[in-house]
Design a protein around this nucleic acid. Structure first.
Lengths: 135, 135
DNA sequence: TTAAATACGATTAATTTTGACGTATATACA
DNA sequence: TGTATATACGTCAAAATTAATCGTATTTAA
């Protein structure tokens, strides 16, 4: 299918919100972001947690808590984001770690797929979120 | 996500078989290809039909029929193959023709996603199957 | 006429994605 | 010090997508 998933889309929305609103309050809660972006709270909350655990956002607990953007969008690639939020960044299932394919012993396209996979990943590594969001 | 589907994988196997066996008989049946590639007959049969309807293979009916590669792999791009066999080549659902997204009126990332989508598609258009398969 | 091939509509099974629920933990503030 | 509000996260259910199968029609060589 070649699609990014909803979580990655929601993350782009959230990150765009952060980078478009550098004037307002630094901390933005998941609830606020869900409202601003019109996305389901539970899902975007998970997304924010994931971004926070990977050092893109910083979380603050408690009543007036929320998230803060602590990394430069120039320094985050599309690949990074996919790596955090997609179930896998591999082009084919057989390339994902241990989950081997039943065809693997006879498969004739392991090296073609592996090669293409690298090219695709390098392509996504070459694009920063700043480039994507500041259009 | 970001994965190619089984049909595209099977197509790569089939096309590799054709391009690796230019000495043997020109016509290869779906049954033969299913055996050679260890893939389910019904599925690869559909794949071959699709490739044939798009002018990559030529089909011959009847008892000693089968398929023949009639296009140069240099002239088929990865994008072409995806376009034939993937349900969609768009990076996000909202970009696919009429199926509009319920967020579209408030969505803040339409143009970023659209832009990224073009870049991804151009990337896939820049790689030929010859490049991919002859590794 | 029969066997073996492509063509394709329709349906089922399997997998993945998306979203929701429940609960634990942390913190500001009255 | 209690309460409201925030993050954190395990688990599960619903929805959507992908993969595979079944059935039947059509074509053609022998």
């Amino acid at each position: 299918m070649n699609k990014i998933n909803k979580k990655t889309e929601y993350a782009l929305m959230a990150l765009k919100y952060f980078s478009d609103n550098t004037q307002g309050p630094v901390l933005v809660s998941a609830k606020d972001l869900a409202e601003k972006t019109h996305t389901p709270f539970d899902v975007i909350a998970r997304v924010l947690q994931a971004l926070s655990s990977r050092g893109i956002l910083k979380a603050e607990y408690g009543v007036s808590g929320g998230y803060q953007l602590v990394k430069n969008l120039e320094d985050i690639t599309v690949y990074d984001l996919m790596n955090i939020l997609e179930s896998s960044t591999e082009l084919a299932k057989c390339l994902g770690s241990e989950t081997s394919c039943e065809l693997s012993s006879t498969c004739t396209i392991v090296s073609p797929i592996t090669n293409l996979n690298h090219r695709v990943q390098n392509f996504y590594k070459s694009i920063s979120l700043a480039e994507v969001l500041h259009v």
